[in-house]
């Protein structure tokens, strides 16, 4: 379990269009590059930003990860506040 690898994935997705495209097309294949547990991979593919942040991941990255997927800011805040999105 490593917040470092989680941060690496989110950083790579936030700074590269090619990575975003690869993740969007084949998430599991894209994530196989990284040292992640099965649980961590599920957190990412499920956009579980609250749980990811709870593992110490920088929230600049969780926020960017959410927004780059086209999801709504309002829903992000509900999830971060542990309200129903």
């Amino acid at each position: 379990m490593s917040r470092n690898s989680l941060e690496k994935v989110l950083y790579d997705l936030s700074t590269s269009g090619a990575n975003k495209k690869a993740f969007s097309a084949e998430p599991e294949k894209f994530l196989s590059r990284y040292q992640l547990t099965e649980e961590e991979r599920a957190l990412i593919t499920g956009y579980k930003v609250r749980e990811i942040a709870d593992r110490g991941v920088n929230t600049m990255l969780t926020w960017g990860f959410w927004l780059q997927s086209g999801r709504a800011q309002r829903d992000y805040m509900k999830i971060m506040k542990r309200e129903e999105a």
Binding site: N58, T59, M60, W63, G64, M77, M80, K81
Partner: peptide, 8 residues
């Protein structure tokens, strides 16, 4: 606050 539950 950037990206956390207190943003705003």
């Amino acid at each position: 606050h950037v990206g956390d539950e207190r943003m705003g």
